[in-house]
Amino acid sequence: MDTQKQLDDFQKRIDNGEKIEPKDWMPERYRKQLIRMMSQHAHSEIVGMLPEGNWITRVPSLKRKMVLLAKVQDEAGHGLYLYSGTETLGVTRKELIEDYIYGNAKYSSIFNYPTLTYADICVIGWLVDGAAIVNQTMLAKSSYGPYARANLRICKEESFHKKQGYEMLAKMANGTPEQRKMAQDAVNRWWWPTLMMFGPHDSDSPNSAELIKWGVKTKTNDELRRHFVDRTVMEAEAIGITLPDPELSYNEETGHWDFGAIPWDEFWSVVKGDGPMNLERIKARKIAYEEGEWVRKAAKEYARKRKLEKAS
Protein backbone atom coordinates (compact mmCIF):
# COMPACT_ATOMS: atom_id res chain seq x y z
CA MET A 1 0.00 0.00 0.00
CA ASP A 2 1.07 3.53 -0.72
CA THR A 3 1.52 5.49 2.50
CA GLN A 4 0.19 8.99 3.00
CA LYS A 5 3.73 10.33 3.36
CA GLN A 6 4.71 8.84 0.00
CA LEU A 7 1.60 10.24 -1.64
CA ASP A 8 2.23 13.70 -0.19
CA ASP A 9 5.87 13.72 -1.29
CA PHE A 10 4.82 12.61 -4.73
CA GLN A 11 2.21 15.35 -4.99
CA LYS A 12 4.80 17.88 -3.87
CA ARG A 13 7.10 16.84 -6.70
CA ILE A 14 4.25 17.18 -9.20
CA ASP A 15 3.27 20.59 -7.85
CA ASN A 16 6.91 21.69 -8.16
CA GLY A 17 6.76 20.81 -11.83
CA GLU A 18 9.25 17.96 -11.48
CA LYS A 19 9.16 15.11 -13.98
CA ILE A 20 8.56 11.57 -12.77
CA GLU A 21 11.01 9.04 -14.22
CA PRO A 22 10.53 5.26 -14.58
CA LYS A 23 12.46 4.22 -11.46
CA ASP A 24 10.95 6.91 -9.22
CA TRP A 25 8.37 6.02 -6.63
CA MET A 26 4.83 6.58 -7.92
CA PRO A 27 1.35 5.73 -6.64
CA GLU A 28 0.08 2.42 -8.04
CA ARG A 29 -2.90 4.26 -9.44
CA TYR A 30 -0.68 6.78 -11.26
CA ARG A 31 1.16 3.86 -12.87
CA LYS A 32 -2.11 2.17 -13.83
CA GLN A 33 -3.65 5.30 -15.26
CA LEU A 34 -0.54 5.99 -17.31
CA ILE A 35 -0.39 2.45 -18.66
CA ARG A 36 -4.02 2.77 -19.67
CA MET A 37 -3.61 6.17 -21.26
CA MET A 38 -0.27 5.61 -22.97
CA SER A 39 -1.19 2.22 -24.37
CA GLN A 40 -4.51 3.55 -25.69
CA HIS A 41 -2.55 6.30 -27.35
CA ALA A 42 -0.08 3.78 -28.83
CA HIS A 43 -2.85 1.50 -30.10
CA SER A 44 -4.53 4.51 -31.70
CA GLU A 45 -1.41 5.41 -33.65
CA ILE A 46 -1.10 1.85 -34.93
CA VAL A 47 -4.80 1.47 -35.82
CA GLY A 48 -4.59 4.93 -37.37
CA MET A 49 -2.47 3.46 -40.16
CA LEU A 50 -5.41 1.39 -41.41
CA PRO A 51 -7.88 4.01 -42.64
CA GLU A 52 -5.07 5.85 -44.43
CA GLY A 53 -3.31 2.76 -45.67
CA ASN A 54 -6.61 2.01 -47.40
CA TRP A 55 -5.75 4.71 -49.96
CA ILE A 56 -2.04 4.18 -50.56
CA THR A 57 -2.59 2.17 -53.74
CA ARG A 58 -5.15 4.63 -55.09
CA VAL A 59 -3.73 8.10 -54.48
CA PRO A 60 -4.06 10.52 -57.42
CA SER A 61 -0.34 11.13 -58.01
CA LEU A 62 3.12 9.82 -57.25
CA LYS A 63 3.85 12.86 -55.11
CA ARG A 64 0.81 12.24 -52.94
CA LYS A 65 1.70 8.58 -52.72
CA MET A 66 5.14 9.38 -51.33
CA VAL A 67 3.61 11.81 -48.86
CA LEU A 68 1.00 9.31 -47.68
CA LEU A 69 3.56 6.53 -47.32
CA ALA A 70 5.79 8.80 -45.23
CA LYS A 71 2.87 9.85 -43.09
CA VAL A 72 1.70 6.30 -42.44
CA GLN A 73 5.27 5.31 -41.58
CA ASP A 74 5.33 8.18 -39.08
CA GLU A 75 2.17 6.82 -37.45
CA ALA A 76 3.95 3.51 -36.95
CA GLY A 77 6.85 5.42 -35.45
CA HIS A 78 4.50 7.28 -33.07
CA GLY A 79 3.03 3.99 -31.95
CA LEU A 80 6.53 2.67 -31.27
CA TYR A 81 7.64 5.75 -29.28
CA LEU A 82 4.57 5.30 -27.12
CA TYR A 83 4.88 1.54 -26.66
CA SER A 84 8.51 2.10 -25.74
CA GLY A 85 7.44 4.72 -23.19
CA THR A 86 4.72 2.49 -21.76
CA GLU A 87 7.15 -0.39 -21.30
CA THR A 88 9.14 1.77 -18.86
CA LEU A 89 6.19 1.36 -16.46
CA GLY A 90 6.89 -2.36 -16.11
CA VAL A 91 4.64 -3.95 -18.74
CA THR A 92 5.86 -5.87 -21.77
CA ARG A 93 5.12 -5.00 -25.38
CA LYS A 94 3.49 -8.37 -25.75
CA GLU A 95 1.10 -7.77 -22.87
CA LEU A 96 0.15 -4.40 -24.28
CA ILE A 97 -0.51 -5.66 -27.78
CA GLU A 98 -2.39 -8.73 -26.61
CA ASP A 99 -4.50 -6.76 -24.19
CA TYR A 100 -5.61 -4.83 -27.21
CA ILE A 101 -6.07 -7.67 -29.70
CA TYR A 102 -7.58 -10.24 -27.34
CA GLY A 103 -8.59 -8.09 -24.38
CA ASN A 104 -10.38 -4.88 -23.66
CA ALA A 105 -7.84 -2.16 -24.28
CA LYS A 106 -9.32 0.76 -26.16
CA TYR A 107 -8.10 3.05 -28.90
CA SER A 108 -9.38 6.35 -30.24
CA SER A 109 -12.89 5.87 -31.61
CA ILE A 110 -12.12 8.12 -34.59
CA PHE A 111 -10.41 5.21 -36.35
CA ASN A 112 -13.62 3.22 -36.40
CA TYR A 113 -14.94 5.37 -39.23
CA PRO A 114 -14.34 4.38 -42.86
CA THR A 115 -12.36 6.41 -45.42
CA LEU A 116 -14.91 6.44 -48.25
CA THR A 117 -13.21 8.82 -50.69
CA TYR A 118 -9.77 10.31 -51.16
CA ALA A 119 -11.07 13.55 -49.65
CA ASP A 120 -11.24 11.67 -46.36
CA ILE A 121 -7.45 11.40 -46.43
CA CYS A 122 -7.23 15.18 -46.75
CA VAL A 123 -9.68 15.70 -43.91
CA ILE A 124 -7.95 13.20 -41.62
CA GLY A 125 -4.75 15.19 -41.99
CA TRP A 126 -6.44 18.51 -41.39
CA LEU A 127 -8.99 17.67 -38.69
CA VAL A 128 -7.93 14.41 -37.04
CA ASP A 129 -4.23 15.22 -36.94
CA GLY A 130 -5.10 18.83 -36.10
CA ALA A 131 -7.04 17.63 -33.06
CA ALA A 132 -4.26 15.22 -32.18
CA ILE A 133 -1.75 18.10 -32.19
CA VAL A 134 -3.85 20.08 -29.70
CA ASN A 135 -3.98 17.07 -27.40
CA GLN A 136 -0.36 16.04 -27.84
CA THR A 137 1.03 19.54 -27.37
CA MET A 138 -0.49 19.41 -23.91
CA LEU A 139 0.79 15.86 -23.30
CA ALA A 140 4.32 16.96 -24.22
CA LYS A 141 4.23 18.71 -20.82
CA SER A 142 2.98 15.63 -19.00
CA SER A 143 4.45 14.85 -15.57
CA TYR A 144 5.69 11.42 -16.67
CA GLY A 145 9.06 12.00 -18.38
CA PRO A 146 8.95 9.21 -21.00
CA TYR A 147 5.39 10.16 -22.01
CA ALA A 148 6.26 13.84 -22.30
CA ARG A 149 9.33 13.06 -24.41
CA ALA A 150 7.43 10.71 -26.72
CA ASN A 151 4.80 13.39 -27.31
CA LEU A 152 7.43 16.01 -28.00
CA ARG A 153 8.83 13.80 -30.76
CA ILE A 154 5.33 13.16 -32.10
CA CYS A 155 4.40 16.85 -32.18
CA LYS A 156 7.42 17.67 -34.32
CA GLU A 157 6.17 15.28 -36.99
CA GLU A 158 2.46 15.88 -36.63
CA SER A 159 2.54 19.38 -38.07
CA PHE A 160 3.68 17.89 -41.40
CA HIS A 161 0.66 15.56 -41.24
CA LYS A 162 -1.75 18.37 -40.66
CA LYS A 163 -0.26 20.67 -43.26
CA GLN A 164 -0.22 18.13 -46.07
CA GLY A 165 -3.90 17.37 -45.37
CA TYR A 166 -4.92 21.00 -45.21
CA GLU A 167 -3.05 21.79 -48.41
CA MET A 168 -4.74 18.93 -50.26
CA LEU A 169 -8.17 19.89 -48.98
CA ALA A 170 -7.63 23.52 -49.96
CA LYS A 171 -6.80 22.37 -53.48
CA MET A 172 -9.83 20.16 -53.63
CA ALA A 173 -12.11 22.86 -52.25
CA ASN A 174 -10.84 25.09 -55.01
CA GLY A 175 -11.29 22.49 -57.74
CA THR A 176 -14.14 21.27 -59.97
CA PRO A 177 -17.71 21.28 -58.60
CA GLU A 178 -17.39 17.53 -58.05
CA GLN A 179 -14.15 17.91 -56.11
CA ARG A 180 -15.67 20.67 -54.01
CA LYS A 181 -18.62 18.47 -53.23
CA MET A 182 -16.35 15.61 -52.28
CA ALA A 183 -14.29 17.83 -49.97
CA GLN A 184 -17.38 19.23 -48.24
CA ASP A 185 -18.92 15.78 -47.88
CA ALA A 186 -15.81 14.45 -46.15
CA VAL A 187 -15.75 17.41 -43.75
CA ASN A 188 -19.44 16.85 -42.99
CA ARG A 189 -18.76 13.25 -42.03
CA TRP A 190 -15.58 13.82 -40.00
CA TRP A 191 -16.41 17.02 -38.11
CA TRP A 192 -18.42 15.58 -35.23
CA PRO A 193 -16.31 12.45 -34.73
CA THR A 194 -13.26 14.75 -34.57
CA LEU A 195 -14.83 16.83 -31.80
CA MET A 196 -15.50 13.58 -29.93
CA MET A 197 -11.77 12.78 -30.00
CA PHE A 198 -11.28 15.06 -27.01
CA GLY A 199 -13.44 12.76 -24.94
CA PRO A 200 -16.66 13.32 -22.98
CA HIS A 201 -17.57 16.67 -21.44
CA ASP A 202 -15.68 17.45 -18.25
CA SER A 203 -18.80 16.72 -16.22
CA ASP A 204 -18.86 13.15 -17.63
CA SER A 205 -15.15 12.47 -17.50
CA PRO A 206 -14.37 10.66 -14.26
CA ASN A 207 -10.62 10.36 -14.90
CA SER A 208 -9.97 14.00 -15.73
CA ALA A 209 -9.66 15.52 -12.26
CA GLU A 210 -7.19 12.89 -11.10
CA LEU A 211 -5.08 13.13 -14.26
CA ILE A 212 -4.90 16.89 -13.90
CA LYS A 213 -4.03 16.68 -10.21
CA TRP A 214 -1.12 14.43 -11.14
CA GLY A 215 -0.04 16.61 -14.02
CA VAL A 216 -0.52 13.85 -16.58
CA LYS A 217 -2.83 16.28 -18.33
CA THR A 218 -2.83 20.02 -17.83
CA LYS A 219 -6.08 20.91 -19.59
CA THR A 220 -9.57 19.43 -19.53
CA ASN A 221 -11.33 17.80 -22.48
CA ASP A 222 -13.62 20.78 -22.95
CA GLU A 223 -10.77 23.29 -22.83
CA LEU A 224 -8.87 21.39 -25.50
CA ARG A 225 -11.97 20.99 -27.66
CA ARG A 226 -12.73 24.72 -27.46
CA HIS A 227 -9.16 25.57 -28.44
CA PHE A 228 -9.43 23.24 -31.44
CA VAL A 229 -12.75 24.69 -32.60
CA ASP A 230 -11.44 28.26 -32.30
CA ARG A 231 -8.54 27.62 -34.61
CA THR A 232 -10.38 25.36 -37.04
CA VAL A 233 -13.20 27.84 -37.77
CA MET A 234 -10.73 30.26 -39.32
CA GLU A 235 -8.95 27.54 -41.26
CA ALA A 236 -12.24 26.32 -42.74
CA GLU A 237 -13.25 29.80 -43.75
CA ALA A 238 -9.92 30.45 -45.43
CA ILE A 239 -10.42 27.57 -47.88
CA GLY A 240 -14.16 27.97 -48.43
CA ILE A 241 -15.26 24.94 -46.43
CA THR A 242 -18.38 25.03 -44.26
CA LEU A 243 -18.30 23.29 -40.88
CA PRO A 244 -21.55 21.30 -40.56
CA ASP A 245 -22.86 23.03 -37.46
CA PRO A 246 -25.57 25.70 -37.89
CA GLU A 247 -25.15 26.71 -34.25
CA LEU A 248 -21.51 27.66 -34.66
CA SER A 249 -21.25 31.33 -33.66
CA TYR A 250 -18.70 33.68 -32.20
CA ASN A 251 -19.33 34.58 -28.60
CA GLU A 252 -18.18 38.15 -27.96
CA GLU A 253 -18.30 37.67 -24.22
CA THR A 254 -16.05 34.62 -23.97
CA GLY A 255 -13.99 35.34 -27.07
CA HIS A 256 -14.57 31.77 -28.23
CA TRP A 257 -16.78 30.01 -30.76
CA ASP A 258 -19.92 28.36 -29.41
CA PHE A 259 -20.90 25.12 -31.08
CA GLY A 260 -23.92 22.81 -31.20
CA ALA A 261 -24.59 19.64 -29.20
CA ILE A 262 -22.20 16.78 -29.84
CA PRO A 263 -23.98 13.48 -30.67
CA TRP A 264 -22.75 11.58 -27.63
CA ASP A 265 -24.98 8.56 -28.22
CA GLU A 266 -22.99 7.87 -31.34
CA PHE A 267 -19.73 8.32 -29.43
CA TRP A 268 -20.65 5.77 -26.76
CA SER A 269 -21.91 3.25 -29.27
CA VAL A 270 -18.61 3.47 -31.22
CA VAL A 271 -16.58 3.22 -28.01
CA LYS A 272 -18.56 0.13 -27.04
CA GLY A 273 -17.73 -1.53 -30.34
CA ASP A 274 -20.63 -0.70 -32.62
CA GLY A 275 -18.89 1.78 -34.92
CA PRO A 276 -18.86 1.15 -38.67
CA MET A 277 -15.31 -0.26 -38.68
CA ASN A 278 -14.64 -1.68 -35.19
CA LEU A 279 -14.67 -5.33 -36.24
CA GLU A 280 -12.69 -4.70 -39.39
CA ARG A 281 -9.94 -2.84 -37.50
CA ILE A 282 -9.44 -5.44 -34.82
CA LYS A 283 -9.47 -8.19 -37.43
CA ALA A 284 -6.74 -6.49 -39.46
CA ARG A 285 -4.55 -6.08 -36.36
CA LYS A 286 -5.11 -9.67 -35.31
CA ILE A 287 -4.12 -11.00 -38.72
CA ALA A 288 -1.00 -8.82 -38.78
CA TYR A 289 0.01 -10.01 -35.31
CA GLU A 290 -0.70 -13.70 -35.74
CA GLU A 291 0.56 -14.02 -39.29
CA GLY A 292 3.71 -12.12 -38.34
CA GLU A 293 4.55 -14.65 -35.66
CA TRP A 294 6.66 -16.84 -37.96
CA VAL A 295 8.77 -13.81 -38.90
CA ARG A 296 9.46 -13.00 -35.25
CA LYS A 297 10.30 -16.65 -34.60
CA ALA A 298 12.54 -17.02 -37.64
CA ALA A 299 14.48 -13.84 -36.89
CA LYS A 300 14.98 -14.88 -33.30
CA GLU A 301 16.20 -18.31 -34.33
CA TYR A 302 18.55 -16.80 -36.90
CA ALA A 303 20.00 -14.52 -34.23
CA ARG A 304 20.49 -17.49 -31.89
CA LYS A 305 22.34 -19.49 -34.55
CA ARG A 306 24.57 -16.60 -35.51
CA LYS A 307 25.52 -16.15 -31.88
CA LEU A 308 26.45 -19.82 -31.63
CA GLU A 309 28.54 -19.62 -34.82
CA LYS A 310 30.40 -16.62 -33.50
CA ALA A 311 31.09 -18.36 -30.20
CA SER A 312 32.51 -21.49 -31.81
Partner: peptide, 9 residues
Amino acid sequence: MTESSTNTT
Protein backbone atom coordinates in the same frame (compact mmCIF):
# COMPACT_ATOMS: atom_id res chain seq x y z
CA MET B 1 -4.55 -13.47 -21.23
CA THR B 2 -5.63 -15.92 -23.87
CA GLU B 3 -3.96 -19.12 -24.94
CA SER B 4 -2.15 -17.61 -27.89
CA SER B 5 -0.10 -15.36 -25.64
CA THR B 6 2.02 -18.28 -24.49
CA ASN B 7 3.02 -19.09 -28.06
CA THR B 8 4.11 -15.71 -29.22
CA THR B 9 7.66 -14.53 -29.55
